[in-house]
Amino acid sequence: MDEPDAVPPEDEPALIHGSISSLSRGQLVVHPTRADYIDMVGLLYDDGYRMCVDLTGADYLMHLDRPLPAGVVPERFEVVVNLISTEMRRRIRVRVQLPEDDLTIPSIYRLHPGTEAMERETYDMFGIVFTDHPDMTRILMPDDWEGHPLRKDFGIGRIPVQFKGAPPAR
């Protein structure tokens, strides 16, 4: 999983296709802006990252000022895409910052058809809307569900447990 060769040392972030890149625990991460996102995935596709194994989101409500590589503006939401190149045996991770007041991002469904379900899941769990997606509906929760469960301001929904009617000690 580590990227031993052809990656810059950690202290000087290099650019990959014009976007800031960094190493996170030895794993290659690239931080395009939302405007560059779809082009970035396309360019990486041409580089050989043909398979999108994972697409998910994250809500940084409690850590709006988290450390990020210089030049990346932290926002509340992130979309995280994991790409893989089976020929180069390499992985790359794409992290896109999304502001809370405009939760839309272009869908990469045309390029990686497998992300159809993953984008639906991210929409379901975080409320991030993927434009151009053929079917932006809930996938895991019931259709009439209100709220997006994995957001940090959505409670876990715990019901207090009462021990009632417990049998007496024998």
């Binding site: 929760m141 469960p149 959505f154 409670g155 876990i156 929904g157 715990r158 019901i159 447990v161």
Partner: peptide, 9 residues
């Protein structure tokens, strides 16, 4: 009883 998954789902 819901077991260890005491949550919204």
């Amino acid at each position: 009883s819901g077991g260890m998954f005491n949550n919204y789902a």
